[in-house]
Nucleic acid binder design. Structure first.
Lengths: 342, 342
DNA sequence: TTGAAAGCGCTAACAC
DNA sequence: GTGTTAGCGCTTTCAA
């Protein structure tokens, strides 16, 4: 069954295609009578506009591409839903893709999106993906990088302050009186991602300023999931008694895993071990979990990124927005009672 | 800066547009020399194919529309990521939209997707949305309904057995020796969603068969979030001592809320109250939560739906696949120890 | 092995 | 207020 087109409507209504087209546009010429007749025919035929043709003709797609490393991560779920909601308010659709941390996949999806004529990009990629950025820059399409950025970067971004995250954690550990601190990192392959290196940078320098030792030996490669947190912690504890009384985890999932495994080994979180996560997922607030976590406002981050991007698409402005959001420590039972009432 | 087109390449390479176009198609005529020359020019110009034009001409978009009620729900996150992954394997892109449980919004997004020439639909909508289905059927595009369906329904679907969920829960409550059972439902507005009514149907009939009373009074309208679970439970407990020793919640989030609030009121989960969730989120498996839950295999559900849909799009087959998946009870501490060692 | 021409469905400039 | 014409970028006959 062929699609109903503007031509079919024109034939039946006895007008030209132009008249039909214009009838769909609110404030165009076209007498009331004609418009009503056309609209009636269109409705009877259950006509739906072919926006592929419309886009080709008009040169606009009202589409934004959103590329992330790993769509499975819960924070990208937050980002994508927020982006979709804000985007829709301005009539934009979002196209998602993830790269699975693979640069060649990143290039591929970037090309696909460019081919689909997206009008803007939101990117959360790692450092190795300059090629994607080059493609986008060459196409002269506005883009904004979110969540994390390569060190020297002159494009638009909305990110959180990774170094500050490390500092906040270090300061909290110091105040609690921790003697030895570990960092449970992402997997070795993805640990070059600047978000992670920045956190380590802040943690290390700040711990040192408090006289607490910290070196590469205190970094453990876990991953980004509960299961990986479990495994990394098991590996550590199998070596003997836990030498650490403070652990910062790369995200809350990993912290849940550490919490679980540590408790299986008789270590009481909040008394024997001060545990801090990053991201402040809603589950961390549950009384039974009560994980101290460093909150990143992904909602605000995404809102800012999308709205500035749309400004730039719609307006004549260059996309130059740069914003670094401040992380915030949320103290809960996993650290609050540390050192008290042993 | 204008986009590079096939024409630009043709001019520079000194060939026709046809030759350029064919050069991009693997097994076409075109001599090796010509093709290489064209490809070189294309690369130098960083040409990217305009797939809007390609789609218009070729009539294919390789796109699937995915419409759900509420994209914020974690299960839709699972479904969308799985759908995207499987789809991509077959070269399909996914377009997402949510309706916020609003039928008029559903019609709107359906039209937008039809306009974008999607080649298939995956839908998780409520009963009121016949209009969306009508539009899709009229356009003669294959579709599959997932997660839940209107009672009499002759289209393709992959769903879980809602009635069975209620029965499984009832049976478990009966075996535990529960005397009085409640159901924490979604909000009143969305409670017509057949997934929920089916669960109640199964729960009620099965409880009755075990001689356990259950009526409309035992249904509490909560919602789908932890916070709403908290609120509904608080409301119940403020009326006096909890009359229930078994509670089934519409999903795990709500169960987390009930767990939390009940414990604040001194009710010990697993001893005083048998608590069951639905969905079996990964967090329910954490030792600290250990929530018994009825698992729905969303991964399998989505995989089946997408792959059958793509079969139907690519092949000449009608889309008629119908599958009901069996839910499965996962027993954890929130029920395992009930009635023992008070 | 290559090119010319037509057309996918729509909109906008221009004429009437 | 309405119609004619051209063309967005691409692919596919058909002819050379």
């Amino acid at each position: 069954m062929k699609n109903v087109t503007i031509k079919d409507i024109a034939n039946i209504a006895g007008v030209s295609e132009t008249t039909v087209s214009l009838s769909f546009q609110p404030n165009s010429r076209i007498s009331k009578a004609t418009r009503e007749r056309v609209l009636k025919v269109a409705h009877d035929l259950r006509y739906v506009r072919n926006s592929v043709a419309q886009n080709l003709r008009g040169g606009r797609t009202k589409t934004i591409g959103f590329i992330v490393n790993d769509i499975n991560n819960y924070i990208y779920h937050i980002m994508s839903t927020v982006a979709a909601q804000i985007g829709n308010q301005f009539g934009f659709q979002l196209l998602y893709a993830d790269t699975q941390w693979d640069p060649s996949k990143a290039i591929e999806v970037t090309k696909t999106m460019l081919a689909k004529q997206v009008e803007g990009f939101m990117l959360s990629l790692n450092e190795k993906e300059d090629v994607s950025l080059d493609l986008i820059r060459h196409a002269n399409i506005p883009y904004v990088v979110i969540d994390t950025i390569p060190k020297p970067f002159d494009g638009a971004y909305v990110v959180n302050d990774g170094v500050e995250i490390g500092k906040i954690a270090a300061t909290h550990f110091a105040e609690l009186g921790c003697k030895r601190v570990a960092f449970f990192n992402a997997s070795k392959e993805m640990s070059l991602f600047s978000a992670f290196t920045q956190q380590i940078e802040g943690l290390e320098s700040s711990l040192h300023s408090f006289g607490i030792p910290f070196s590469d030996e205190d970094i453990f490669y876990a991953g980004l999931t509960v299961e990986e947190g479990n495994r990394a912690c098991t590996k550590l504890l199998e070596r003997g008694a836990c030498p650490y009384d403070g652990i910062l985890c790369v995200n809350d999932y990993v912290a849940y895993g550490v919490m679980q495994t540590a408790e299986k080994h008789g270590i009481k979180i909040g008394r024997d071990l001060a545990l801090i996560g990053i991201d402040n997922l809603e589950f961390s607030a549950l009384d039974r979990i009560s994980l101290s976590s460093i909150a990143i406002d992904y909602h605000k981050m995404t809102t800012l990124a999308v709205s500035k991007l749309i400004d730039s698409i719609e307006g004549p402005k260059e996309m130059t927005y740069q914003k670094t959001l401040a992380p915030k420590l949320i103290i809960r039972e996993s650290t609050r009672t540390f050192g008290k009432g042993k």
